[in-house]
Design a protein around this nucleic acid. Structure first.
Lengths: 262, 262
DNA sequence: CGTTAACTTGATAGCATTCAACTAGCGTGG
DNA sequence: CCACGCTAGTTGAATGCTATCAAGTTAACG
């Protein structure tokens, strides 16, 4: 794991310039499933923020930390993970643009897991104070973000099913299916393929398998990442339906289109 | 406890009599980590509800359902679970008194998993409409419940670690540690023991193991449930510290005492 | 006292890990 | 420019954990 980089108020002007308003795509995502009024949108746009770019394999927030801000992904791929005493690592989630992977730190003081980059990534930090302000004054936004927490939990539950009761091959297939649809949601992929962020080691830590086994079972899949490094590469899926079958994949749990119940 | 008359669509008078105010312990739990004002408490107490008792192994809400109410556990033990095409079952959570296991249905229309009883249980249903009313008028309560969603998600993440990267023995030990502290929180157990709700089959489905393997690894634990059926029985833990060591258990993720960050 | 559910125990098979060696791609520096 | 080293991936062989199959045993219940 690469050494930790320090948080610092916008030192890289170039990064700041590129993301004057990093909330546009977040708003678009929230509006897919929730109704927000102009007043709400303005409030989001006016959130204070502070951008930062990270190299691959960097830890952003660590287990035990007590963050005072949340992290919105703008570009790249992050992962949350835990490390056990014997060094074993379990990836808990992958997070892409428009995700707020450590939203929980807003309500739970102490981090119970780590947040780090998988690939080179750009994130934007939002102070908890701003979020307190935003959610208390705009109940609709609070409901939106609460809903996102539920979707995140739903994905976690499906990962439990994956880890506990699916074969190695199904686990991998299921993970690929999930990533395809989640990346489609933010417009950077679909059922025919998507940008490839993972090494096999990362894949192993997400599926609870060994690297060696990932290599072998991956080769039997309709979608084969091939070999070599995959930074900025793309995964092509020749047979989506086949992958879905192997995975036993049902996208309901992603709640991509469902309207809120209330 | 203050006595109060509640108007509610009560069908079973006997059950209703026993739980005139099922929200007392919920309030107590929420107040452990959040500040609620008298006005908030009154609003919770005035929630409309509708009690119901279930036999062991009953399904309360099914995958695919679109519930119009949420379910507060009053007594007993519930579990959420998924069933795969080949019949394999994965338990996603255990839920006890003061838990609202299907709170997600409030924000996500369609159920992506099942909710059922493990033991004989008493629950109370709260209409989504009432919750909408409650949370929109009482932001502090909304924040409270949102926080509970985060805790639930944190527990799910720890289960992922369990399923993905811990040995069979550690998984079982970890599960027992978690249950001990969660049941302590609601005052029905502690580090020396707690009421035993599980069969080994349930334990197997929660830890991603086979029943046979659960039997064997359980025997090696400092805390041994013994043998036979365990309904209404109690698990005694002779050596808590030993169990914690085997499990690699760190209770941080339960967020039992932490104050909200905001 | 028979029936059933839950648990236990033994034997066997298989999937996944581990260890180890090897290949390919890529960046760095002499 | 190319050797060197590093990262990522691949492949083979052996070990081992866990599942599965099968046959008891115990406890609860009517």
């Amino acid at each position: 794991m690469a050494e930790r980089q320090l948080h610092s108020p916008v030192t890289r002007r170039s990064v700041a310039m590129r993301f004057q308003s990093p909330f546009g795509s977040l708003i678009k995502r929230l509006q897919r499933t929730n109704i927000l009024l102009p007043d709400d949108l303005r409030a989001i746009e006016n959130l204070s923020f502070h951008p930062r770019e990270y190299k691959p394999g960097t830890e952003i927030v660590r287990e035990g930390d007590k963050p005072t801000q949340c992290c919105l992904v703008v570009e790249g791929c992050l992962n949350r993970f835990n490390v056990l005493a014997d060094g074993k690592r379990q990836v808990l989630s992958f997070n892409f643009a428009t995700d707020i992977p450590d939203l929980q730190s807003f309500h739970l003081g102490k981090m119970d897991h780590n947040l780090g980059t998988v690939t080179k990534s750009v994130v934007v930090f939002i102070p908890h104070d701003s979020l307190t302000d935003l959610t208390s004054r705009h109940p609709r936004i609070a409901a939106c973000l609460w809903r996102e927490t539920h979707v995140d939990a739903a994905i976690s539950r499906q990962w439990m099913v994956n880890l506990g009761r699916r074969s190695a091959q199904s686990r991998l297939a299921h993970l690929l299916c999930e990533q395809a649809l989640r990346l489609k949601q933010i417009g950077v992929g679909d059922e025919t393929g998507f940008p490839w962020f993972f090494t096999q080691a990362v894949l192993a830590d997400a599926t609870g398998l060994s690297v060696v086994h990932v290599t072998r079972r991956l080769q039997e899949l309709p979608a084969i990442p091939g070999r070599g490094a995959f930074d900025n590469k793309r995964l092509t899926i020749p047979g989506w339906e086949g992958l879905v079958t192997v995975a036993g994949f049902d996208p309901t749990y992603l709640h991509l289109d469902s309207a809120p119940a209330n």
